[in-house]
C-alpha cells in the first residue's frame, strides 16, 4: 500500500507534541527498567478504551514520516480493528502501511507476535488490556506495587499450582506470565503462550501500552524473557496434530475455523500475512481445493470473474 495524503487538520501523528514528549519519556524509563510498569498520562483517543488506545498512543509518539506501519489484530491484518488503526495513521501521519512483516519498521499488535522472526531495528507495540500480571492473585494496587518492588512473586506460582492440581498441566494458554531480565514478572498481554518464547532475546524492541490502565512497559532488544514454570512441570507451548489447511505450515499458531453446521472445521494460520506468503510461494494445504473456490475467498466473485 502506498503513502496517503496527510490530513493537515491534525498534528502529525494525531497527538500534540507535548503529549508525545511525555509518552517518550515514559518509554525511555520503561526501556531502562525492563518489565517495570511506568505510569503515564493516557489521553482520550478517537476510539473507545479497550480498542487499543495504549498501543495507538505509543505508535503515535514514535511514528515518523519514514516509518512503515503494520497493524495486527489476532494475527490478521484484515480485521476491523487492524484496518481502522492502519487507516487512522495513514490519515494523521501520512505514513506507508504494509501487511508484510519484514517491510514494517513499526508493528502494532493485539494478541499475536508475527510468525516471521522480527529483526534489529523493528519495534513491536502491544495493545495491553490488563498490565498487572498479579491482578488475579492480589486485587490491591498498593500491594501489587510492593510485591513488584520487592520481588515477592510466590503468589504468582499459586495460579500455576492450581492449574496443575486441577488439570494435570498448566492450562493457562494465553496471558501466560513471564519473568523479564530475572527481575520483574510481566504480563505478555493476551498473546497465546505459543508466542512467549519469541519474546526471549528478540532483536526487535517490544513496547507495551495500556491506555485505560495508564501504564507503559517495555522489553529492550536481546533481553531474557522466561515463562514461569515448575521444575517438574516445565513451560510448554500448544501443539497441533495437523498442519495449516491452507498453506500446510507446521509450527505456526493455528486458529480453528468452523466451516459448516455439520461439525466441519479446519485449522488455519492465525498470521494471515505469513499464510498468504506461503501460498504465494507455492505451499498448499489439505483444503487447497476449497481455497481455490473463489466464491469463498473473494468478497466480490463477480469482479474476479
Amino acid at each position: 500500500m502506498s503513502a496517503q495524503t496527510i490530513d493537515a487538520d491534525y498534528n502529525f501523528g494525531y497527538l500534540d507534541e507535548q503529549t508525545k514528549r511525555m509518552i517518550r519519556r515514559a518509554l525511555l524509563k520503561a526501556v531502562a527498567i525492563p518489565g517495570y510498569q511506568v505510569p503515564f498520562g493516557s489521553r482520550e483517543m478517537p476510539l473507545a478504551r479497550g480498542w487499543g488506545t495504549g498501543g495507538i498512543q505509543i505508535t503515535a509518539a514514535l511514528i515518523g514520516p519514514e516509518d512503515t506501519l503494520k497493524v495486527i489484530d489476532q494475527g490478521a491484518d484484515d480485521t476491523t480493528n487492524a484496518v481502522s488503526i492502519r487507516r487512522f495513521f495513514a490519515r494523521v501521519a501520512g505514513v506507508k502501511t504494509t501487511e508484510k512483516t519484514n517491510e514494517a519498521t513499526l508493528i502494532q499488535t493485539r494478541h499475536r507476535i508475527p510468525e516471521y522472526p522480527l529483526s534489529k531495528g523493528q519495534i513491536l507495540v502491544y495493545q495491553v488490556p490488563q498490565p498487572e500480571p498479579l491482578r488475579k492473585v492480589e486485587s490491591s494496587e498498593v500491594e501489587t506495587r510492593k510485591m513488584h518492588a520487592w520481588s515477592e512473586y510466590g503468589a504468582m506460582h499459586v495460579r500455576l499450582y492450581e492449574d496443575i492440581a486441577r488439570y494435570g498441566r498448566v492450562a493457562t494458554s494465553y496471558s501466560y506470565p513471564v519473568m523479564v531480565n530475572d527481575r520483574y514478572v510481566m504480563s505478555p498481554t493476551p498473546i497465546p503462550k505459543f508466542d512467549n518464547p519469541k519474546m526471549d532475546h528478540m532483536p526487535a524492541l517490544q513496547l507495551f501500552g495500556a491506555g485505560r490502565e495508564k501504564r507503559i512497559y517495555a522489553v529492550p532488544p536481546f533481553t531474557k524473557v522466561k515463562s514461569l514454570d515448575f521444575e517438574d512441570y516445565p513451560f510448554e507451548v500448544q501443539k497441533w496434530n495437523e498442519p495449516c489447511a491452507l498453506c500446510g505450515a507446521r509450527g505456526s499458531y493455528l486458529d480453528e475455523v468452523i466451516t459448516d453446521d455439520r461439525g466441519g472445521r479446519m485449522f488455519v494460520c492465525s498470521d494471515s500475512s505469513y499464510c498468504e506468503d506461503r501460498r504465494d510461494a507455492g505451499h498448499t494445504g489439505t483444503q487447497i481445493d476449497w481455497a481455490k473456490d473463489k466464491a469463498y475467498l473473494d468478497p466480490n466473485p463477480d469482479e474476479a470473474a
Binding site: 510466590g154 506460582h157 514454570d229 515448575f230 521444575e231 517438574d232 512441570y233
Partner: peptide, 10 residues
C-alpha cells in the same frame, strides 16, 4: 508459603 520462599518443584 512454600512458593513464597522460592520452592519451585510441584
Amino acid at each position: 508459603r512454600l512458593m513464597d520462599r522460592g520452592d519451585r518443584h510441584y
